[in-house]
Design a protein around this nucleic acid. Structure first.
Lengths: 196, 196, 196, 196
DNA sequence: AATGAATGAGGCTTCATTCAT
DNA sequence: AATGAATGAAGCCTCATTCAT
């Protein structure tokens, strides 16, 4: 029974490769089927249509990222260290799962049918984790401020990951250096929260 | 008179809309032609093929952004104020030209034929502007450090713009607030340059 | 039942007509589909692409000709008579299957993707039949000479067929007369093999 | 004034290359124009349309071949020798001018508008030359027989050339050998004229 | 659970040709 | 003598999807 739902997973995997490698238009049911070794028709057994397949991919990615972050949060440690680690987890998720990352945060949404609203709630959870931590770190700020700061931190993390993954960054820059630098920058951004 | 090269410009405009709205695969010669009111064939009078049309768009965007930044640089002012303004220019370019921005910095490059190398030099100029300014602001750092910091600042600016434009940011957040916050964050990032 | 693979065969038939009538460029998937009464897309169910369709035609023709020649060879008879009959078979194949013939021996090969090498072996078999027979008829010649003579005989047969089929021959000439004449000429050519 | 009608000739030359290299459909006004360095429109200054351009090519080829044969005929020599030389001239014209040859004797005529009848008279002249010579060589035959024999000789010569030019002949066969063999075969064919 | 046949729309691109200049 | 802009038709081929089996 190792083969149980084997095909479904294979389809998802190939879809992910194609989606990132060739974009929305380049990911076709035919190509997926050909690579997986089934007929295009078979894909429709597992997924209603192309867009629903992509939505499944997004959801998978969101779950994976959230799981990584939860593991990080479950470790007892000093808040600043925790913040740093959470940033690192986010960056490393992007570098380790470029396909999921780009699908989740970068892919143009317009050619697709809209991503079901109820699934977006999952997406928001991750931002909340950052905000909570920032609120803890600087108890003197409002919740609103913390959310704003979290958004800004997220922007930095996302920008770094995005530029790296889309190869818009100088190739001479060392990846580990770049990660450290980004985390330091994120920390320095905490200072600006609720300053007079 | 007013019609001089009218069609060519119309084609570029519609291509830009489609490219951002529907991605690489969604921008089709047929659609462009239909919207502009000419035949697909006519497009080939002005552009060799689809990719060359897109390359033209990228180049236009790069030129526009660089021009904006040059105007900013030409104003005499205190370095820190100049840095802030340069950040603002970058952000506002993105918000004002979402289509150009996404094409330049976000569009997946893979389905396209590669962007000609000699045109990339233009793209690098903009990063250099940031690096130069940071080097001026903190003379005690190496040029290399300045470039690294510039990259990080760029990552923040890009992340903010990207999340905003792709509507991944909470719609309740006020745009002006967000811009100010991002600029403040950028400034705070300067502190981390060449710290022991 | 009778409809089994009906469409595939219809496609091959129309393709053959068009290929001979209008050349490589004139045989279009659209035209085939229109005449057969299906959509162009359906053709791709049975054939990978245009060239592979043509290759199939060539192979079919080669097989048919070889089969005709084998039937002739299987009849016990005096060698010279056998040689004459083999010539006649070749000529009559051409006249009876002008489309196959021209595709096999006359169509320019350049616009096409190259005919797979392993299929060419089939094509060479037919020349070998002639060479073997000539070698039998005139045991005093080398195998090499026999092959050369066979090639020459083949050239005559091909030239006659070709001129006839492409209507470059005076229309007043009687076909049966012409066939007889050609066969007599072929026989007379045997004399030149291995003469001092 | 060396440039007089330069463009017209260049167009004809490129058209010839393309026609043989890529067939009727592959020879396009655009390609010709691009290679010659003018606009497609310019071609229409010299030629009414595509087919008329091709007709011009055929005519040129016919004239060239006829001229070669006339030069040969003008040399005083023993009839048999003359016959052999005429055969050689024909073969060598084909090998030296593969493009003209294939256009004249091999190209499918159907996709083209019909070759004007009055120009075909030129084409027939060449066959007449052979017939005349054969009639001289064997005065005991009827003119009709001579024409029939000439046609058969022509078929051999054409078959040899055609197979060679379309690369359907074993590449190991030496060209000079093949030419000699073909001429000997042609001579041997003379014997069959008007035998009881 | 999976397939094979089919479709209609649309993808990019090139064609021969015309017309105004 | 030559061009630049434009067109309508057609080129090959792939798409997502459906339906009967």
């Amino acid at each position: 029974m190792a083969k149980f739902n084997n095909l479904r997973q294979q389809i998802l995997d190939e879809a992910r490769h194609l989606l990132v490698g060739e974009g929305y238009g380049g990911m076709s049911m035919r190509k997926i089927a050909h690579r997986v070794g089934c007929t295009p028709t078979s894909i429709y057994i597992y997924f209603q249509n192309k867009d629903q397949l992509i939505h499944t991919l997004i959801e998978e990615g969101m779950d994976n990222l959230h799981q990584d972050m939860m593991i990080c949060q479950s470790v007892e440690q000093e808040p600043l260290r925790q913040f740093e680690n959470l940033c690192r987890i986010f960056l490393e998720f992007g570098f380790a799962n470029p396909e999921y990352y780009l699908i989740m945060f970068q892919m143009p949404t317009e050619p697709m049918s809209p991503y079901p609203i109820e699934k977006y709630r999952k997406a928001r959870r991750n931002l909340k984790e950052f905000a909570t931590l920032i609120f803890e770190l600087r108890g003197d700020c409002s919740e609103e401020d913390a959310l704003l700061a979290a958004t800004s931190v997220w922007a930095l993390l996302h920008g770094s990951t995005s530029l790296f993954l889309t190869q818009r960054i100088d190739t001479s820059i060392d990846r580990e250096n770049f990660i450290s630098l980004t985390i330091n920058s994120a920390v320095s951004m905490l200072d600006i929260v609720s300053k007079p």
